[in-house]
Nucleic acid binder design. Structure first.
Lengths: 235, 235
DNA sequence: CCAAAAGTGTTGTGGATACACCCATGC
DNA sequence: GCATGGGTGTATCCACAACACTTTTGG
């Protein structure tokens, strides 16, 4: 299907092709330290260029599918999951991103909560990596992930995306763990609690989390604006 | 050159085409009130769809030209100006943005200082409009401009983009006027001055602006990081 | 009773706002 | 002198960090 080019001048006659890629973040405990860390799934390339290297999940845009829908489909196809949060990251289009035909990639980033089924999807060609140890990837994908991490941390300090990593109810300490894992530094529990309570984004429930070997913490529920972030920012 | 389609199903077989558009902002005094306001240049469409309507300047991406270069070229071709600031805004690609063949637009936004030559370029097919009164534009361009305005105001409250609207030297009051025009509200001169001086972005010169009918204000010079904002954010 | 985490109180500090006041120029 | 904007001083408020302290559970 894809034409092959004998040389550069032929290549330059073709219009650039368009692809959608997605950086998918999830939180999982580190198997060694047990601490919560950021992970992301990558797929192994099965054709040239960069064959055998790991890369971001992605593919072409289908007719009559929006950019966002294409990103959600990437996510579904590689992890089986639905995004809890999905937002456009950047369009990468330098003429030298890829050898042979030029590709412009519109990249999205997503937050998910993986379940066992999703993690089990690991196989020869799909695997989860700690976000700070992905090795050398195909194309400019290392750079893209760095940028996505930067955006994630940035949004974290403002918005309410943290809840996209959590279930329907959670303790304040769990929210704090999410922040600590993403930002990579510890936060004062007392002050953090007050900051959260100052926002109108959460609501206390009457339940408590049992089973710890200490005082059971109260559970909260997210009640702020929709996280799904469809369409685009002006919110 | 562009193929014509007899019906929708034919259209859907074609891959989406790619275009670059640019929202160009400049500050000019309002001809009525004399107050500084935001303006932007638009071009009249000379072919279908939306023929005769005003639209953002744009066009296809050329081979071996980066996305950013294409945006700078748009700007140059429609205004004759070079950007003082240029940044990617968003990629718009809904399947219904345009009747007939689908177009994915990667949109940039720019800040410039227009000179007489640039403003003179007004003709049948290029004209400057106040940013809050552009009328009904082609495609989804009204929405795009709203988003660009939102981003501009956002960046304004942080970064040092304000200087992109100003010449090599300026008074603190001029900087304040820029902020007031963009944000649409008045700022306390005393506090604003201190905020600016607290940053390391400006440096006092030994010159004063003469000719006012009051005490001559001191001139300052921008010395902060490069504004041009090449490549992309991680800064 | 003790350990450990949940949760509350208190204090100090830096930045931002509001606003009173003085300075230097043109007329 | 007086009007006008340039420029300085200062009191107040508020968000936030630091950290001591109390509470409630499991063992």
């Amino acid at each position: 299907m894809t034409p092959k080019y004998a040389n550069v001048s032929e290549r330059e006659l073709e219009p650039p092709s368009l692809a959608i890629s997605t950086v998918i973040f999830a939180l999982r405990p580190d198997p060694e330290t047990g601490r919560l860390t950021l992970w992301l799934p990558l797929v192994r390339r099965i054709r040239q260029p960069y064959r055998e290297l790991w890369a971001l999940p992605g593919g072409p845009l289908r007719p009559s599918e929006s950019l966002q829908d294409a990103a959600a489909r990437n996510l579904q196809e590689t992890t089986g999951l639905s995004p809890r949060y999905l937002e456009q990251l950047y369009a990468f289009g330098g003429p030298d991103r890829s050898p042979t035909p030029r590709v412009v990639s519109i990249v999205y980033w997503a937050l998910v909560q993986p379940d066992e089924a999703a993690l089990a999807r690991q196989d020869e060609n799909v695997a989860w990596f700690p976000a700070d140890a992905v090795g050398t990837l195909a194309f400019d994908h290392n750079r893209i992930i760095d940028y996505a991490l930067w955006r994630l941390r940035n949004k974290m300090e403002y918005g309410s995306i943290a809840y996209a990593f959590l279930g329907p109810t959670f303790t304040l300490a769990q929210v704090r763990e999410v922040y600590e894992a993403v930002l990579g530094r510890e936060l004062d529990p007392a002050n953090f609690r007050r900051q959260l309570q100052a926002t109108q984004d959460i609501e206390r429930t009457d339940s408590f989390l049992q089973g710890g070997r200490h005082r059971p913490p109260r559970l909260y529920r997210y009640t702020g604006p929709e996280l799904q972030s469809d369409a685009f920012p002006p919110a």
